[in-house]
């Protein structure tokens, strides 16, 4: 495995250098991979003001599998956007791998996403009329990797998610479950520290959903990738080691999920 800090797209800089060592300290008690302190997010101003997050404190260590649940409007999506460097908090601070990221520019956040994160969305978000292989290659293009190397890694990633032989298929030629596997391949091709999955099984039937959850669990267990997953299905949440409930922009509970709920593990 290539250390993320050595990928070609990584710029020089102490912040990113520090983050690069994040995976080296997976044990609880050491510096958390992700650390939120008093994070707030306010949309709009005056009467139209919406307080999406009202002070979040959260530590996530490398190698954890965290499920986030909560009713709509509870702030869980906002939290995911902030955790995924897609949005910035209004107040509080966010440290990734021990380094503050609050003052980073748009492009620096893009570099963090590129080198340390992978995204899996409910609606797959694959490029239409673009082959599975090309879709998986996409993050590597932005890292500036050479074409042959890119091809090889994308091939491997598709094999890993069980789509060997479907490299040339367009998303429209693949089932929902297969499309989500392509999306997961795209997320892991850069060998990220964290996968952020926003309702990854939301559009899938039960047996497809369990297949996807098994895949994510395997990535977590075997490759040590930290997984943050938003879901509203308790059946899926039990795959996680840790379950966080959001209500009204606050963390209401932070527990170990009840593994007694039966599921096909």
């Amino acid at each position: 495995m290539m250390p993320p800090g050595t990928t070609p797209g990584t710029p020089p800089g102490t912040i990113l250098g520090t983050v690069a060592s994040a995976r080296a300290v997976p044990s609880p008690g050491a510096t958390p991979l992700i650390s939120l302190r008093g994070v707030t997010k306010i949309y709009g101003t005056g009467d139209a003001e919406v307080r999406a997050l009202r002070g979040i404190d959260l530590d996530i260590h490398g190698g954890e599998f965290v499920a986030i649940m909560g009713p709509s409007g509870s702030g869980k999506s906002t939290a995911m956007n902030i955790l995924g460097f897609l949005d910035k908090p209004t107040g509080g601070s966010y440290a990734f791998g021990g380094a503050e990221v609050d003052d980073l520019s748009r492009d620096q956040l893009a570099l963090l996403r590129r080198n340390f994160l992978g995204f899996v969305f409910q609606g797959y978000n694959l490029l239409a009329r673009t082959s599975a292989l090309d879709n998986v290659e996409l993050p590597l293009i932005y890292q500036g990797m050479a074409r042959t190397e890119r091809r090889r890694l994308a091939f491997d990633a598709l094999g890993k998610v069980g789509l060997k032989g479907r490299e040339d298929h367009d998303p429209s030629q693949l089932s929902g479950g297969q499309q989500q596997r392509v999306a997961i391949a795209r997320a892991i091709v850069t060998n990220p520290d964290v996968i952020l999955a926003d309702e990854p099984t939301g559009n899938l039937d039960t047996s497809r959903s369990h297949e996807i959850m098994d895949l994510l669990t395997e990535l977590n267990r075997k490759d040590g990738i930290t997984i943050l997953m938003v879901t509203h299905e308790p059946d899926m949440a039990v795959y996680a080691d840790r379950l966080i409930h959001f209500v009204d922009g606050r963390i209401e509970s932070d527990t170990i999920p009840d593994k007694a709920v039966p599921h096909a593990l």
Binding site: G9, G84, L86, R106, D107, A110, L111, R113, R114, N115, L117, F119, N125, L126, L127, A128, L138, P139, Y142, Q143, R186, T190
Partner: peptide, 12 residues
């Protein structure tokens, strides 16, 4: 498509 590209780490 632009959103996807930005999410996977394309810079401005």
């Amino acid at each position: 498509e632009i959103g996807i590209r930005l999410a996977v780490g394309a810079t401005e």
